[in-house]
Amino acid sequence: MVATTTVRDSRVPGAPSPTTHDRLVVYRTTIGQAMKPPRFQYRDPDTLADAVALKARHGSDALILAGGQSLMPMLNMRLAAPSVVIDINGVTDLQQITRNGDVVEIGAGVRQSALETDPLIREALPLLARAVPHIGHIENRHRGTVGGSLAHADASAELPCTAVVSDAVVVLQGQNGRREVPASSFFDGFMTNACADDELVVAVRYPVTPAGAGTAFVEVARRNGDFALAAAGVIAEVDGDGRFTRLAVGVAGVASVPLRATDVEQELLGRPVDPATIEAAAKRVEAAVTTGDDIHATSAYRKHLAATVVSRAVLAAATDARNGGNR
């Protein structure tokens, strides 16, 4: 880090002499293979109305640019070549978190990192505060948005999993107005969603977690920040006798969409919180695992992991509930 350059570019403090730059440009042009986005028209509306109008005009030729943490890699690798890119980072209406009674509405443009620290989220939606730190790295979460993660609809992604566990509702807006789609039907296939070509995700509504409910999010990934091999999000309520009175279990990474482990939920409802009982019930999730062998894991290993994360998350959520949950 010791600066040895003596000739410096006056334009920016600290910049080395332009010759380095000249060589780089020549090199990059010569190899001609650099990972760079294709050409597109860049549009940056200030208002939601303008964003919706642009999306309506260009339909599937246009892609929304939110946090860019999934779209920019696709552009750099030229896996996506939209003719129009609609940057919604200037639409401040999409960046609010608001509570209306028993519902918290999170705007599509809210940064993922904001969910980790926002006091309202920590109090009213503790599962989100627990799940979000598993999304990539902080440098990704500083840009990545809630709406982008939902729209991208990766089956291993944490936020879609929390939406399915929480019975959240995704709010879409198109030229014909707004509609609300339950998370369970919003994710309708491998990396696809119910958003029409002329629509945007504008918000997601989560029911406030009841006082005393416990939450847990457990994930297994190869390295810190990697997508989950398997993850489970759980909301549990336990009565004075230590029995499950409510249980919602979501699993990510094991099928083409995030799933509810309804078999596990049904088996445990009314039963006592007991590690052996939970471990046995969690095995029921294995039947729902449809992801085949891939470079990250075999299908058999994923089945094992699915049962493991479900078991751990259910026990952790029950323990959290017995300790009073978030309140």
């Binding site: 650099a34 990972m35 986005p37 860049y42 940056d44 640019l65 860019g68 943490q69 920019m72 890699p73 750099n76 690798m77 940057d87 980072n89 990192s113 990539g136 790295h137 902080i138 440098e139 990704n140 500083h142 840009r143």
Partner: peptide, 27 residues
């Protein structure tokens, strides 16, 4: 890597670390 994984392009944007390979200059 130019797809957000290696972190070597990290810069501070308004004081927060971000991947500069995953933003457009216009942004």
């Amino acid at each position: 890597c130019e797809h957000g994984v290696c972190g070597c392009c990290t810069i501070l944007l308004d004081g927060e670390s971000v991947r500069s390979c995953l933003m457009l200059a216009v942004q």
